[in-house]
Design a protein around this nucleic acid. Structure first.
Lengths: 243, 243
DNA sequence: ACTATACACGAACAAGTGTTCTGTGTCAAG
DNA sequence: CTTGACACAGAACACTTGTTCGTGTATAGT
C-alpha cells in the first residue's frame, strides 16, 4: 500500500507535543539530543530524520546549523492533552499573575516512617490545598515547574539531611537519579523515607547524608530502594519573629 | 561616560531592544556573537559582560552553557518602539508583581570566622548587588520587608544550626531578641559568628543549636555577645537537577 | 601618583549541538 | 528469495556557541 504520506506516527506526535511543551516552558526549543531523550530515541540521526519529515510537512520550521532554532508552525492537538494543558494554564494564571512567581502545591507531610505522598504521575491535580509561592528566579531555570510539589517535614528524623521539623521541601517526582542529586528514597528493609545524596557505585548505591559528619548508607540491592523524587529546594521559615 | 549605578546604559537598552525584536522575529534568541554584531561590540566577552548585568537586574534570564537560551523578562520600553500591547502587559505585570514578590538584597557571605556584613542602619544601600526574590506570602505578614537582607553561607561551620554551605539565610537586623528566636550572634570570646536559638535565663543567656542532638552554649556576661540580627528564613537550593 | 573599577578587545578553549556516514534489522512487494 | 524502502543505532565529525583569561584603556577617588 505504500503509504506513509499523510498520517503522523506516534513518534511524530510525541515530538510535536514535547516541542510545544518545552518551548512553552522554557522559551527556547530543545536540542536534538534532548528531543531524543524525551521520546526515547537513542540516536541523534533518527531525531533529525523525524524532524526533517515534520519540517517537510510544515509542522515545524528550523534553521540549518543553528542551535535550538525549531519553531512550531502547526500546534498539534491531542484532545486530552489540550484540555489538561488549558486547565493547568488556568490554574497557573490564577495563582501566579505573573510569570515570575509560581505556586507549588503543598501535598502533605513527609515523615520518616511512611512513604511520601507522591502525586500520581497524572499530575494536573490542581486543587484545594494550599500552595507555596516561590519566585521563579530561585529555581533552576529548566525546572519543569508544573511537576513540582512541596511537602512539610514532620519530626526530627531527617536532621542528618540538615532538614528540620517544619521545613518545607520542594521536590520533583522521579524514579531515577544521577550521581550527586539529593533524593527522597524509600528503604524497604528499614521501612522508612529518607533524604540523601545519591551516588551509584559499581554494584551498589551509596546514600550520603548532607551532614558531612555522618556516615553514608550503602544499598547493595537496587530493589531495596525506591526513589520517590529529587529535592529541588528546602525552605525553613522562622515565624516567631513578630513579637 | 562614567556611569554605573542603576540606570541601564545605552548598550543595555540596545541589547534589550535587539533581543526582543530578534525573538519576536525568529522565535529563538540570538547568539552572543549575533548580539555583538548588532550592537557593535567586537568581543563576545563584552557581550557576556552586559548580559550578566542584565540578568542580575532581572531583565533577562539565561541558561548556563545552553545556546540561545536567553529569555526576556521585562520588556523594555524604548519610547519610540513601545508596542502598545506590551505596555499594558508590562504595566499589569509590574503592579501585580510588585506587591506579591519582593527582592531581598544579597549583602554577601556569612562565615563563622568573621562578623557578618550587617548593613548600616542607613538602609538606602539599594542594590548593585543581586537580590533574592521571595514571594511575600512566605514571610510573616508583619515583616518589615525593606529591612531584610540575605547572606550566603560559606563553609560547614554552621551545621549545628542545620545550615549548610551554600544556603541562603534571610535576616532582619536587630540588637535584641526575644526568647525562642533564631539569631545570628557574634561571640567575643570565641571570635565567631553563629546561629542559635536565643533564650534569656536568669543571669545568663542560653544559645540553643537548632540540631536537637547538640548541647547549648551559655553566655554569662551579656557583653560577650552581640546580636547581629534575627533569622527570618533559610533557603537551600539544589541546582544539580540537569535532566 | 596610585589604586580600584568599569569598559573594551581578542584569542583560545571547551562544551553544546547539528550533520553525516556506516551498519543493522524488519517487512512487504515483486 | 531477493530487493528496497524504512526505522533505528552509534560514532565520528565539524560547526556553533558560551566561557575564560590575559591584556589594555580611561576615569574617578584617594
Amino acid at each position: 500500500m505504500a503509504r506513509k504520506k499523510e498520517g503522523l506516527s506516534e513518534r511524530h506526535r510525541k515530538i510535536m507535543e514535547y516541542l510545544t511543551e518545552f518551548i512553552e516552558e522554557y522559551g527556547y526549543s530543545p536540542s536534538i539530543r534532548e528531543i531524543g531523550d524525551a521520546i526515547d530515541v537513542k540516536s541523534t540521526s533518527l531525531v533529525d530524520y523525524y524532524l526533517n519529515q515534520l519540517e517537510e510537512r510544515k509542522y515545524i520550521s528550523r534553521e540549518g546549523r543553528i542551535s535550538r532554532s525549531i519553531r512550531v508552525l502547526q500546534p498539534i492537538r491531542s484532545a486530552t492533552k489540550a484540555l489538561s494543558k488549558q486547565i493547568s494554564d488556568a490554574a497557573q494564571a490564577v495563582t501566579t499573575a505573573v510569570d515570575s512567581i509560581i505556586s507549588i502545591p503543598l501535598r502533605g507531610r513527609i515523615v520518616a516512617s511512611t512513604p511520601i505522598p507522591v502525586p500520581p504521575s497524572d499530575f494536573n491535580y490542581f486543587d484545594s490545598e494550599s500552595g507555596v509561592e516561590i519566585a521563579r528566579s530561585l529555581l533552576p531555570a529548566r525546572e519543569k515547574i508544573n511537576e513540582l510539589f512541596a511537602l512539610e517535614v514532620q519530626g526530627d528524623s531527617m536532621i542528618d539531611a540538615m532538614v528540620n521539623d517544619g521545613d518545607i521541601i520542594v521536590m520533583r517526582p522521579a524514579q531515577q537519579a544521577s550521581n550527586g542529586e539529593m533524593v527522597a528514597v524509600w528503604l524497604d528493609d528499614k521501612d522508612e523515607t529518607t533524604l540523601k545524596y545519591f551516588y551509584k557505585e559499581n554494584n551498589r548505591i551509596r546514600l550520603q547524608p548532607a551532614n558531612p559528619t555522618m556516615d553514608p548508607i550503602y544499598v547493595e540491592n537496587t530493589n531495596d530502594l525506591r526513589i520517590m523524587g529529587k529535592v529541588v529546594m528546602v525552605i525553613r521559615q522562622y515565624k516567631n519573629t513578630v513579637h
